[in-house]
Design a protein around this nucleic acid. Structure first.
Length: 437
RNA sequence: GGAAGUGUGGCCGAGCGGUUUAAGGCACCGGUCUUGAAAACCGGCGAUAGCGCAAGUUAUCCGUGAGUUCGAAUCUCACCACUUCCGCCA
């Protein structure tokens, strides 16, 4: 949630920065009008409530003293008030809903220092790791490689046809050693984060309610990107949703809570499937498993104190890099420009892995500091040094997208005969085998 | 799915139409005492929002939402969560 105090105290400058950085136009006139109306209405409503409370209390006192005449007099005096109070309360609630609705649709404010730009072309490379392997044959893409691998009588190890029959486009079936490799990757990532990076492993719901989706920012603005799950008995009003990332489940752990400052930073991780309708991406990445309706991801979420959240973002990005390094996959780190950042982010690093067949780097992880944006929506706070409740900062990052990592392994570790070498760190998870064939 | 019960501040727990301005306890913070600590005693101690330069002050909040009433933690209805039992089930 956008910080309303920024709009109240520094409206012009804030609106300028939002326009300059994100190209987002805050409706200044509309906000000012709503605020003025809210202020007048709130003062009036509270005044009426006070009158009613005072008179009602007096009625009680008169009755206690058996002064029926006085009580009747007071009752006559209050008579008209409840109706006025109710009308005012309703009007105030309407205005506050409007203001809240406006606040919920404004994206987060980028940190100063984030490069200004309109799209991914203007992201700024921070560093590279690893050297793309030079193949002495023509590198195949993961689809060709995976479809050529056979899982005995069950057919191709990577099978989009069967998936299409079962579910439609943008789904995949994996079989045999490839399915095992997919599982091995997730296990490896999770194990590394838990035993080497100090994360708490979590198992979380894949279906969440609208409050959770609002908390992390998917709702109300991006409902068309989600799969809606009508729950029996919910009469269509309270839909639930499949998570598009376990960031939603993990971050909402602290919704409506005051976190003990001693427990910060909190490092949470989970391996879950993610479900995205990919509305609006028709025609993009239609081949292969780069962009699916369902994919697995190991997610990292931090709940942090404000003064350390930027350091935590660096740490988290480093942890995602560690996974790629252990897997021996070349990558580069990009600092996203303002125009390419997500709705809730103030600063984001993307990790892009080298894909030989595409002869380019492709996003495999995205690590963001959301600062207090989600915390305000969720009412997630901690007691600061002054003993005051203050919103926490939240961060999230992929560590990593499992499907895309599988793609990277297939393409980077392919051999001339179509077999796939298995990175050393994964072999213990693969029953010791060194090659997929 | 059926039946019964329970939801009150960080925690326990009283209150079941009107000085509730939510008792009491625990925890926590400050002080007295003490060489220091503990104990004892004294005082403080909820959240959210508004108004105000400030001191302050006002409203709302007892699972959630409607309703009854001049007045609701308290009465009515619906919903949600949890507990116990029965049924079904991976």
């Amino acid at each position: 949630m956008f910080d309303i105090n920024l709009l109240r105290t520094d409206l012009a400058a804030t609106a300028d920065w939002m326009r300059e950085s994100r190209g987002y136009a805050i409706d200044v006139a509309a906000f000012e009008a709503l605020e003025a109306e809210r202020k007048a209405l709130q003062i009036q409503t509270q005044d009426l409530q006070q009158q009613r409370n005072t008179l009602s209390k007096a009625v009680g006192q008169a009755k206690a003293q058996k002064d029926d005449a006085r009580a009747a007099e007071l009752l006559a005096e209050v008579a008209a008030l409840p109706e006025k109070v109710k009308a005012n309360e309703a009007a105030l609630a309407t205005i506050q809903e409007k203001i809240n609705g406006l606040l919920l649709t404004i994206p987060n404010m980028p940190q100063r220092g984030v490069p200004i730009g309109k799209d991914s072309e203007e992201n700024v490379e921070q560093r590279r790791w690893g050297t793309p392997k030079a193949f002495d044959f023509v590198a195949k893409d993961h689809v060709a490689l995976g479809e050529a691998l056979q899982a005995g009588g069950a057919g191709a190890q990577l099978d989009f046809e069967t998936a299409a029959k079962l579910s439609g486009s943008r789904f995949v079936v994996m079989k045999g050693q490839l399915a095992r490799l997919h599982r091995a990757l997730a296990q490896f990532m999770l194990d590394t984060h838990v035993s080497e990076h100090g994360f708490t492993e979590c198992y979380v719901p894949y279906i969440v309610n609208a409050d959770s989706m609002t908390g992390t920012g998917q709702l109300p603005k991006f409902e068309e990107d989600l799969f809606k799950v009508p729950m029996a008995g919910d009469d269509g009003v309270k839909n639930r949703y499949l998570i598009p990332t376990s960031e939603v489940s993990l971050t909402n752990f602290v919704r409506d809570t005051i976190v003990d400052a001693a427990n910060l930073p909190m490092r949470l991780t989970a391996h879950t499937p993610c479900f995205r309708s990919e509305a609006g991406s028709a025609g993009r990445d239609t081949r292969g498993m780069i962009r699916q309706h369902q994919f697995d991801k190991v997610e990292m979420v931090y709940i942090s104190k404000p003064d350390e959240s930027n350091a935590m973002l660096e740490e988290m990005t480093g942890f995602a890099e560690t996974i790629l390094q252990k897997l021996g996959l070349p990558y580069r780190v990009m600092l996203l420009c303002t125009g390419d950042m997500g709705f809730g982010a103030t600063r984001t690093y993307d990790l892009e892995v080298w894909l030989p067949a595409q002869n380019t780097y492709r996003e495999i992880s995205s690590c963001s500091n959301c600062e207090a944006f989600q915390a305000r929506r969720m009412s997630a706070r901690f007691k600061n040094a002054q003993g005051k409740n203050e919103p926490v900062h939240t961060l999230n990052g992929s560590g990593l997208a499992v499907g895309r990592t599988l793609v990277a392994i297939l393409e980077n570790y392919q051999n001339a005969d179509g077999s796939i070498s298995i990175p050393d760190v994964l072999q213990p998870y693969m029953g010791g085998i060194a090659t997929l064939r």
